[in-house]
């Protein structure tokens, strides 16, 4: 891919909303989620300079994003003191009632995801971004069977958490 600045910026811009969503899925505190998204963008930017088409770009970028998230969890020692309120994600031009309902659903989904164990949270966040089992396996270094098992467990837990 090379280090063409315009290409790098284009890729970062394209993946930016996904980074923001991933960061919100991993970090409850909105301010720290902002920081995490910035860090993801930076690491993707650095990693792209070394990208040599050894895997699909999509897989490569997601691998970096989720690696930064795991690194964040490793380093964060005050995570359990963080608040659950997060208003990181916005609505998309719908009426007031519908918007309110949608916002509540999003909050519910976000909180349920944040309460999943890490191994299930990872596969869920990737599936919510429409990655296939094979792609998720490549991103996380797992087998497809393992991914399928985790996804089944994640769906069950997500349903329980969202029903609470």
């Amino acid at each position: 891919m090379g280090t063409n600045q315009a290409t790098l910026e284009h890729v970062i811009a394209e993946y930016w909303p996904r980074m923001v969503r991933a960061a919100a899925g991993y970090e409850r505190n909105p301010a720290l989620a902002d920081e995490l998204a910035q860090e993801m963008a930076f690491e993707v930017w650095r990693a792209l300079a070394k990208f040599e088409q050894q895997s699909a770009l999509n897989t490569y970028v997601y691998r970096v994003i989720h690696n930064v998230a795991v690194d964040h969890i490793r380093r964060a020692t005050r995570r359990h003191e963080t608040a659950l309120e997060s208003e990181v994600l916005d609505d998309c031009g719908v009426g007031p009632d519908a918007a309110l309902q949608q916002t509540q659903q999003k909050q519910q989904l976000m909180q349920a995801i944040q309460r999943l164990p890490l191994s299930l949270r990872q596969v869920t966040l990737l599936r919510l971004e429409d990655l296939s089992d094979r792609e998720i396996a490549a991103v996380l270094g797992l087998t497809e069977t393992n991914v399928a098992v985790r996804l089944t467990r994640a769906r069950q837990q997500l349903a329980t958490l969202m029903a609470e």
């Binding site: 930016w16 909303p17 429409d130």
Partner: peptide, 16 residues
């Protein structure tokens, strides 16, 4: 849920 998730766009987030 996937649709709901992907609808979300960054609002307050500054660009990288």
């Amino acid at each position: 849920l996937t649709e709901l998730w992907q609808e979300a766009k960054p609002s307050k987030q500054p660009a990288p």
